[in-house]
Design a protein around this nucleic acid. Structure first.
Lengths: 352, 352
DNA sequence: TTGTATGCGTTATCAA
DNA sequence: TTGATAACGCATACAA
């Protein structure tokens, strides 16, 4: 079924058919009505290949997501999808491996799909420096800060990562902890890790807390298994600590498991705080203290920026979204002077 | 950059260029070499729109995934992606809402993308009955059983859902439990729930265990929040029980949280078992007992079937993948005769 | 307001 | 083994 068939059916020419189907104004009401009815009857749809071949660009927005099992990104995609529905752009969501180059992938997809703009969920400055000059449509990097990158068509929206880490450490300190260890990503490689690590160091300095950059830090990928491994490594290192900050919630959950396996109670022996604010943290035992990234705000800002840059072409803009502390059980007020094991429900924190 | 430009650059005609780029045999080695080099130099890529407009079909495989935040499906997609990489087909992954109609979406996408075949991750018999006749390429429904559906081009690969539920109940019974409640989906609507529920009833009957189909069952969607709510509803109902089977791991995790909030110890007061075998279950406190679905086997079989049906057109085939019990802490041997609270590490089960 | 005709980049048919 | 050329389905400039 093509517009030619529709033309034969209605008696109108393909030109008129095309105009009606593209909501152009210069068509008579009568023609519009007849053609729309005929199209609806046979469930007609324009051929996207032909359309885009002709137009040389699509009307869609591309979303490149780094990591298929990243729950934070999954929430972001959901939110973006819900918001875009009202704006009319079709969405092309492309999931790539956490370790793949998101920019070269985007370059390839831009050639193929010719989108109006692209949203990067996660990304690496290095990759942008290497390949981003090949892409010309407006882009927004979400979750990482692209300030300082020399591209006129790249904006960014990210949580305040430095502050987030500071808040996590501040919270632990306010609970009386002075011996704190940290689990996070590669400090030399991951942009996000760099910022969060900086926040940690600032907080430690401000509170006059000693922190050995080698012995009190363990590098891990952002996964349950790696959080588990990292916490065990810290324990085996023999370093004494009463609190642990993991740079992501999944790492924190893995770490809590390792601590429990080692006979440590959370939060009585070791307080644990994560970062992200994933839904699962509300349901773990103990409930996971965390610094929450505002998914809805991230999605809203990203789309607003992208839309603005698609319509006009203003200077790139780099927004920072506030974060908020969720002080839950895994880093709650420690019971004072307790030396004996607690009853089994102690993990439920201050409720008793 | 088009094949015309390449033609001008190399002196060969567009026909020869096209033949080389499509790995056709009837080209001289010299032409092949020259053209391939020129194409590589400028990073040339064929225009997919033009190609598909001409060919009337693509060479890709479509994957329709129901639910963007479904961890089981995320694992399946990862596995499928890894396997497909070696087979050469491009993958189109389309995520739709859990409640949307996957078949009508597939119909639309088939018109647009003309894939060689489609993989459904999750699906509903009703939807297939309604719309599937409009799709003509080979399809495999993964995770649900399509046996009995009157379609020549629809195969299916699913876990043995009846057995899985039986195994879960059997395990609880083997631990000495007789008062068991169940959380699952809509028994009238969800195909998967029907089978798992049937497995439960069979197990109860076999063991001579009483089960009130209204009072001992709570309907919930497959989420943390709903598992939590359902468990609380069961508690508030005043029904006594010593064990709980949740038809998914996320529900089970939500349920455990609700039980803890109500002062119940898991597994000492209430044993809990889930179904799926998600990674998170290895890290919860207590570790989650579960009946594991074999993601790798599901992915392997689905792709094998699909590929077979693309190459030949044999009769549809409906495979069942075995499941396996992971008897972890949340449903471990209960301590006998205990009445006092246990030490805090009791949740770690039989290790002490 | 409508119709006609051209070309988007590719594949495939045919002739050379 | 190669080149010329006609489609594929659509949007659009131009003519009517």
């Amino acid at each position: 079924m093509t517009i030619k068939d529709l033309s034969a059916q209605t008696g109108y020419s393909v030109g008129t058919i095309s105009r009606v189907l593209n909501h152009q104004p210069n068509v008579s009401d009568k023609a519009r009505e007849i053609i729309l009815k005929a199209a609806a009857e046979c469930g007609f749809q324009l051929n996207t290949n032909a359309k885009q071949l002709k137009q040389q660009h699509s009307t869609s927005i591309l979303v490149v997501v780094k990591g298929i099992s990243n729950e934070l990104f999954a929430s972001l995609v959901e939110s973006v999808q819900a918001r875009i529905a009202g704006m009319g752009y079709p969405l092309i969501v492309d999931y790539i491996d956490e370790n793949d180059n998101e920019v070269s992938r985007a370059v390839q997809l831009c050639r193929e799909k010719k989108p109006l703009g692209v949203l990067f969920l996660g990304g690496n400055r290095e990759h942008f420096l290497q390949d981003f000059d090949k892409i010309t449509v407006p882009c927004v990097l979400v979750t990482n800060d692209a300030a300082g990158l020399p591209f006129e068509n790249l904006s960014s929206v990210s949580s305040d990562n430095v502050l987030a880490a500071r808040m996590a450490i501040d919270h632990l300190v306010s609970l009386g902890h002075r011996k704190i260890v940290v689990i996070g990503g590669e400090r030399q490689v991951s942009d996000t890790t760099k910022l969060r690590y900086q926040g940690c160091l600032e907080a430690f300095r401000q509170h006059g807390i000693a922190f050995d950059e080698e012995l009190d830090y363990e590098t891990a990928r952002f996964s349950l298994a790696e959080g588990f491994r990292a916490a065990r490594a810290l324990l085996e290192r023999g370093r004494e600590f009463t609190a642990l900050f993991a740079m992501s919630d999944v790492m924190a959950i893995g770490a809590i498991r390792a601590l429990r396996d080692a006979g440590k109670r959370v939060p009585q022996d070791v307080a644990v705080i994560g970062l992200d604010g994933l839904a699962i943290g509300e349901y773990t035992v103990p409930r996971l203290a965390t610094v929450r990234q505002e998914v809805e705000a991230l999605a809203e800002s990203s789309l607003r920026l992208l839309q603005r840059n698609i319509k006009n072409t203003p200077a790139p803009c780099h927004e920072t979204i506030p974060v908020s502390l969720d002080p839950r059980e895994s880093a709650a007020t420690p019971r004072c002077g307790r030396t004996k094991p607690l009853p089994p429900d102690a993990n439920q924190g201050s409720k008793s």
